[in-house]
């Protein structure tokens, strides 16, 4: 019996040593940590992230590791703590991340992002009419209304801003509060089912669902499109050049901007993000988002 115990200890200590070594080795080279929370079908990116990291790795000649993150505040924190180097953020989360990590650079956005839009939708049974202008959002008062995710720019922040502009507070909805469905797809499903009388989601998801035939126009109608605002963007850590070599940040930007639909692989990556191509993005585009974020208490 004694020898069994002894063998156990020997075995386990060997394994521990092996583990420690394994870790040392994997740490020899600087790795670029990438993450993204796309708005549409994030589970697909979580499964196909190999495409993105291998493409970046090939173009940049550094090891790239994709870290799956599914929760917005977690991604912001991970960016602040330096766990992530390159992240696909929404408008609000990108601003939150930049405030918590001063010096972070906005690299790129999709062709649709500078003029992004949300759509307000309503269940046909709710008898909410198609709105002629923003001030008619008043019709939503006293209705069961749902946003998407709490940190979403297109599913919450900007719509709440447009509602507030015409004097609708969150407590004006039925039950004294709006719902938070958690995602754009869920918002659509909940409004179409009638659980909520109205809701708001990003226009891209709405259109994609129409294309796929998932929208039953007899049950759910578009009532208003918001004015455009800038949304998603790639954000990088300020110190990449020091860690990976001169001009690395620029090279990274060029790589992203260079992704094109002509290559099958790159085209797959672009479609995971719902983009035709990526274009340059700038800090100043997001000044309004920051102001609104502060106004609505999402940024301290």
């Amino acid at each position: 019996m004694i020898s069994t115990t002894r063998r156990w200890f020997l075995f386990s200590s060997l394994l521990f040593t092996a583990l420690i070594f394994a870790n040392r080795l994997s740490w020899a080279q600087q790795t670029l940590f990438v993450s993204a929370i796309p708005d549409q079908h994030p589970e697909k990116l979580n499964r196909l992230y190999g495409l993105l990291s291998s493409e970046l790795s090939k173009k940049l000649d550094v090891p790239v590791r994709y870290i799956p993150v599914t929760n917005y505040p977690a991604a912001v924190s991970a960016f602040r703590t330096g766990n992530l180097d390159l992240v696909w953020f929404g408008g609000l989360t990108g601003v939150q991340a930049r405030i918590q990590r001063p010096g972070a650079k906005v690299l790129a956005q999709r062709d649709i992002d500078p003029e992004f839009q949300s759509v307000f939708i309503a269940n046909s049974a709710s008898r909410i009419p198609v709105l002629q202008n923003q001030s008619e959002l008043i019709h939503l008062k006293g209705k069961r209304f749902t946003f998407g995710s709490q940190s979403s720019t297109s599913g919450r922040l900007m719509p709440q801003h447009f509602l507030q502009q015409v004097g609708i507070k969150l407590s004006d909805f039925k039950g004294k509060r709006p719902g938070f469905s958690g995602s754009h797809d869920a918002t659509l499903a909940l409004v179409q089912s009638g659980s909520y009388e109205a809701g708001v989601l990003n226009k891209q998801v709405w259109e994609a669902n129409i294309k796929k035939g998932k929208v039953d126009k007899s049950k759910v109608i578009l009532i208003w499109e918001t004015p455009p605002y800038p949304d998603y963007h790639w954000l990088v850590q300020p110190d990449l050049d020091e860690r990976f070599g001169k001009r690395f940040t620029n090279k990274l930007q060029e790589t992203l901007l260079g992704l094109s639909k002509n290559s099958t692989k790159q085209s797959k990556i672009l479609s995971l993000f719902g983009a035709n191509r990526f274009i340059k993005a700038y800090d100043y585009q997001y000044i309004d988002i920051e102001r609104i974020g502060r106004q609505l208490g999402k940024i301290k």
Binding site: P42, E43, P68, V69, T70, A74, S183, D185, A186
Partner: peptide, 22 residues
């Protein structure tokens, strides 16, 4: 489910996208 990885994340993401079969 709240994003810390594993099958919960998988469940949450597929449910949000209403991909019930997945």
């Amino acid at each position: 489910v709240f994003g810390l990885g594993g099958v919960g994340t998988e469940l949450q993401l597929t449910l949000q996208s209403l991909e019930f079969r997945e």
